[in-house]
Design a protein around this nucleic acid. Structure first.
Lengths: 148, 148
DNA sequence: ACCGAAACATAGCTATGGCTATAATTACTG
DNA sequence: CAGTAATTATAGCCATAGCTATGTTTCGGT
């Protein structure tokens, strides 16, 4: 019967975007983690990366291969992983967004540890628009708290 | 080097949960959509399902096969798809959650259409705990919030 | 300077979720 | 009621993301 309602295409597009977000999510997670490791340990080794991502080491190696293909990272055999400029920029954005999402969730009453957990999945689907709304909420909330 | 900080396992677990959520996400989307179609059209045909999910028809067929394997749906060749009791229950929960997430996003200032879009990805990562926080926020915002 | 252990890479398997092309079945229409 | 159109299923391809097992390379201690 092919019920092509006008809203169908829009809805299909929503799902398409969610799928797209998903395909970027792993890249974002790895890039962020590489940044974290460099800050904390001065380098990002494959083993540490794998451990923190909760995957086996060859899985991390494979992910790094994809990061390199996408121009987000470089690596030297048996030497660890490094972010490109693009990768470092992405890492910064991702970390900022992560912090915002967690802070926002906490602000609306989600316990810290749950917020941290849920944010890991949620953050990748938060658009610029929604992120701004979160930031505004946090700003206003802060102002309200300082009012007697 | 193997820096096994105590927090590593917890963080790894967060990612593991996010991955798990992702693997359930498609099931949830299809189940919800099948429910929608039954309500709107009285039946859920593969073609309509595919169109609304924004995928090719064989992709929908394959997804349905997985739904059947997981005991969420049944189907009769060339006749359409039906939810099992389990599937119908899941569909109800998913739809309620979706509505809550959208309403919540709108309540914190996200435009309707953006909320609808982002919710499609976010909802799958919203834990019971966080969902409750959203519901509470929606219930209380008129009274408590917006104290300018 | 070596040898063993640790770190990393590679090979090769599974499952999922996309796709196109094509076969099979059902439904409609004249 | 026959033939065509629409719908659904199947076959077979690709990429991703996970795994184990095993081969390489580097590092550290004696």
């Amino acid at each position: 019967m092919s019920n092509t309602r006008p809203s169908d295409k829009k809805q299909a597009d929503h799902f398409a975007r969610a799928r797209e977000a998903q395909s970027v999510a792993l890249l974002e997670d790895y890039v962020e983690m590489i940044g974290d490791l460099h800050e904390e340990l001065g380098e990002a080794r494959v083993a540490d990366l794998a451990q923190r991502m909760g995957v086996a080491q060859p899985t991390a190696t494979k992910a790094i291969a994809r990061l390199k293909r996408e121009g987000l990272a470089t690596s030297r055999r048996y030497r660890g992983v490094f972010l490109t400029e693009t990768g470092a920029a992405l890492a910064m954005r991702v970390r900022a967004r992560h912090r915002t999402v967690v802070a926002f969730l906490v602000a609306v009453g989600v316990p810290e540890d749950v917020a941290e957990m849920d944010a890991e999945g949620i953050e990748h689907h938060v658009s610029r628009h929604t992120l701004t709304a979160f930031e505004d909420y946090l700003a206003n909330r802060l102002a309200a708290d300082h009012r007697p």
